[in-house]
Nucleic acid binder design. Sequence first.
DNA 1: AAAAACGACAACCGCCGACAC
DNA 2: GGTGTCGGCGGTTGTCGTTTT
Length: 326
Amino acid sequence: MGRHSCCAKQKLRKGLWSPEEDEKLFNHITRYGIGCWSSVPKQAGLQRCGKSCRLRWINYLRPDLKRGAFSQVEEDLIIGLHEILGNRWSQIAAQLPGRTDNEIKNYWNSCLKKKLKQKGIDPSTHKPLIEIEPLEPQEQKPDVKDSRTNSFKPVFNPFPMCEFEAVIDTLETNINLYNQLQQNFRPFDPNVFAANSEFDLIQPHDSGLFDYNTVFDVSESYGTGESSSNSSNWNCNLGTQLNNVICNETVNWSSETNKLEALFQMEVNATVQAQQGKKELYPWPQEQQQEQNSEDYNSFPSQSRSQEISDGCFDLSQGQFDADFL
DNA sequence: AAAAACGACAACCGCCGACAC
DNA sequence: GGTGTCGGCGGTTGTCGTTTT
């Protein structure tokens, strides 16, 4: 397996994207939708490889991206999901609408790992560091340790404990489980989470530790390599098999649901943000001179951009979405 | 004030699986 | 079945602004 073909071509630009390049890519995608990425550079007039264009769109130009710092709830959710999924950033990102895997990965590596270490938790195993490598006395954080159970409290558990009704029906099982999952594990929305008391149903085990494995049987192949499949609510082999279904399919379902929701919310969000005057990263070049000064590079005339979005491929009413966008 | 260190984020690289031919 | 292309993913590096010395 050699170097990616599109990257082997000569005279392709690398490095940071200029506003002009962003404009070209954005205009192209809004006009024609997402199709074959390898053909995008040529069609859009960019001296970039298709992979670079794809990455730029996904991580930066997509209209449904959420900007700004991670909230405490998002942070806790990332930690909880990382305990389950490990470094599966794309699957973690699927649970946080508007956040990209790259963004979460960067945030994890730059901030969350440190925070967990400071709390005496090993970021790779999510277990107390004291079990792995005893800390110096002054480094220990007694405030995060449960004196009653002599174990460290986890930061947060986004998943309430619940039971699933498994039905042996090759045709309907997935639908049935999907419906139950949707009721219990709706795609994460911090606002809903903050406002919804149903998340109070999260219950700790007697040990003081929350148990994700009630729902997710995290096998060795998943996540951090720590296996803990001893507390499943599933019954016997059926439970194991269906648990695997949950492990393998839940994220995909949720991912698809997120994509659909993002799809339908995309224009709404853009419009709302425009109305709220939220800042974007930078203005598009044609408006830059009119409306921006050099100091306020990050401001963005969101109303006009919103109009552009509405007129482009994101207008559901015009049926211009490319199927590949999903 | 200048240099070094640090942190956050953007982007690249290499690998893999799916797919078409 | 072999080969090439493509999209996707995770790890890593590069860049740039900020803070510290």
